[in-house]
Amino acid sequence: MPEGTADILLIGYGNPGRLDDGLGPAIAARVAELDLADVTVDSDYQLTVEDAAAIAEHEVVIFADADAAGPEPFSFRPVEPQRGDGFSTHSIEPAAVLALARDLFNASTRGYILGIRGYEFNEFGEALSEKARANLHSALDFIEPRLRQRDFEPSAAGGDLHPTRGYATINGEQACATEST
């Protein structure tokens, strides 16, 4: 399948009962509402090993998750398969599940992490914090054109990635656009 026309899987994960931990499922729900062609959307409480089988059936996978300490409002970066010994819970990290897809299913799926900055995690509650909601909107504005164009390289859709750091750190749309153009 030629690059740019691939089927895409977006997995938004987190616990919507833990305040900003629900950012992943929240963006998955928003993307699902867009009903984009060739984009499959899934959401779960956490990333798990069986996701490797679904990932192996797609050319591109985007892992959308809340980020407890990452840059604001979000970051977007490619992730390479990496076998890890950090299967510390029933959930696993994106690099490790990509490695499973590669090692067990001979997949060459390209992976990206969309880490949306969150702030409140340690209480029960179903609402995102105000700042997290703003970050969610920024992330959605960023990812939607890329999903439509099926292109996730730094120059895509306005080119607001931050190549010098090896991944996209989006500190606001204006700043990103300035840096990347």
Binding site: G14, Y45, D67, G70, T89, F121
Partner: peptide
């Protein structure tokens, strides 16, 4: 929570 950067 399991968010990125959290330790179990």
């Amino acid at each position: 929570t399991h968010a990125l950067g959290r330790m179990p």
